[in-house]
Design a protein around this nucleic acid. Sequence first.
DNA 1: AATCAATGGTTACAATTGTAACTTAATTAG
DNA 2: CTAATTAAGTTACAATTGTAACCATTGATT
Lengths: 158, 158
Amino acid sequence: MNKSTAPLILEQFLPFRLSRLSESISLKFAQHYKREFGMTRPEWRALAALGQLGTLTSTQICQHSNMHKTKVSRAVQALNQRGWLHRKRDKADRRIEYLQLTQIGRRRYTKLVALAHQFQSDMDSTMSAAELATVNEAIRILEQLKVNGVSTNKAKPT
Amino acid sequence: MNKSTAPLILEQFLPFRLSRLSESISLKFAQHYKREFGMTRPEWRALAALGQLGTLTSTQICQHSNMHKTKVSRAVQALNQRGWLHRKRDKADRRIEYLQLTQIGRRRYTKLVALAHQFQSDMDSTMSAAELATVNEAIRILEQLKVNGVSTNKAKPT
DNA sequence: AATCAATGGTTACAATTGTAACTTAATTAG
DNA sequence: CTAATTAAGTTACAATTGTAACCATTGATT
């Protein structure tokens, strides 16, 4: 059987399967925080990164969450306007801005985290321990492939 | 340790991990067909579904690939304008349109499939057989969760 | 120190997307 | 048989996004 004339079985094609999966799961989760907190996905992601890691620059958020820098820029603006984070310029290098959640931001973050834990444990509870282990192992494997790298902040190649 | 005050470890949170993964992998693959065939992601997906499954309606493409119906509608228009598919109304129920690839469409499809197989085997070759099995098994598990369902074509709930 | 390249970040503008409303056709209820 | 519902698919419009160009600042080269 000549491979080049065989059709592509989408149900076996990794990019297809992954994005179909990821989109439905992320959408499902997004419904929660969209409805209850009026947040967009990029905002949620930036908030989550800052909540977990403390102080970050926009560039670091880009790298960590693999989002485009304009997305991050706008998410950060939105969070800032709501008073959920504040910005602090680096004294030494005044291009750099450190971002950090405010009191209010941290309170929101705590609520969101509860949602997330709930969501995760709902998913987990539909799997056996062994299945869960398989899932985690698989994702770990894929993450190491590092096919990675949305262009987050790089200059154009010459 | 009270869970409700613990931060969320994004590196362990399934929706986050999946979408980070999926986005970088899909983007990587998209670069190929975008550059070489000038196709968008929805177009590629519609083409792939039709190539594999033969004749489909727009609604079926929605369900199969979990894309929003307007996305599919526009992708189908684009493919149609390029002469890659043709539409045929159902005689009995004239709301329904059967979509099918043309000669040209099938030729394009064949080329795309070669790209996809290449991509897949590149990925596969960076994993051991056991790892590959784990990955496939994990995705299978997640697919069964069926947290599923982008609203593709449903009427509003009353 | 003057010039040129690179970096962190923002923004204008164009392309892509989703929501809701619409069209046409079929189905069901009265 | 007509009116109200529902389905397949399209489209207008607003929101979201990405690309490329842009500041401002720093670092490197001479």
